[in-house]
Deep mutational scan, measured.
Amino acid sequence: LDITFHVDGKNIHVHGASEEVVRIIEELIKNNARAEEIKETLERLLR
């Protein structure tokens, strides 16, 4: 699975993920999660 995301100002662009995963990533970023935390969360979800 190949998910890429980047933050452009306040806009979060996520590619290669389901809508549910996109929402989770957006929440994590809004809550100022570190990249490592986001990665760990995604790995748990995608197991």
Rank of each mutant, 00 (worst) to 15 (best):
L1W: 12
L1G: 07
L1R: 12
L1S: 09
L1K: 12
L1H: 10
L1F: 13
D2V: 12
I3R: 07
I3N: 02
I3K: 06
I3F: 15
I3V: 12
I3G: 01
T4I: 14
T4R: 07
F5K: 03
F5C: 03
F5T: 03
F5D: 02
H6G: 04
H6V: 15
H6M: 12
V7Q: 03
D8S: 05
D8I: 01
D8A: 06
D8C: 08
D8T: 02
G9A: 02
K10A: 13
K10S: 11
K10E: 15
N11F: 14
N11T: 14
N11M: 14
I12A: 00
I12N: 01
H13L: 06
H13P: 03
H13A: 05
H13N: 05
V14A: 08
V14R: 00
H15T: 10
H15N: 06
G16N: 12
G16D: 08
A17T: 04
A17I: 13
A17M: 04
A17D: 01
S18Q: 05
E19S: 11
E19M: 14
E19Q: 11
E19P: 13
E19D: 11
E20S: 09
E20H: 09
E20L: 10
E20A: 08
E20N: 07
E20K: 08
E20F: 12
V21I: 13
V21M: 10
V22S: 03
V22Y: 09
R23P: 01
R23I: 07
I24R: 08
I24M: 08
I25L: 05
I25C: 02
I25S: 00
I25Y: 02
E26N: 14
E26G: 10
E26K: 14
E27L: 13
E27H: 10
E27S: 11
E27M: 14
L28T: 01
I29L: 09
I29T: 02
I29M: 06
I29D: 00
K30D: 05
K30G: 07
N32T: 05
N32M: 10
N32Q: 11
A33N: 04
A33Q: 05
R34S: 13
R34Q: 08
R34L: 06
R34Y: 05
A35N: 05
A35V: 13
A35S: 10
A35I: 14
E36G: 08
E36D: 13
E36V: 08
E36A: 10
E37T: 10
E37S: 08
E37C: 06
E37F: 13
E37N: 07
I38W: 05
I38R: 00
I38H: 01
I38A: 02
I38V: 12
K39Q: 14
K39F: 15
K39Y: 15
K39V: 15
K39L: 15
E40M: 14
E40P: 02
E40Q: 13
E40A: 13
E40G: 11
T41A: 13
T41M: 12
T41Y: 10
T41C: 06
T41E: 10
L42T: 01
L42N: 00
L42A: 04
L42Q: 00
E43N: 14
E43L: 15
E43H: 15
E43I: 15
R44T: 08
L45A: 03
L45T: 02
L45N: 01
L45R: 01
L45G: 00
L46G: 03
R47G: 14
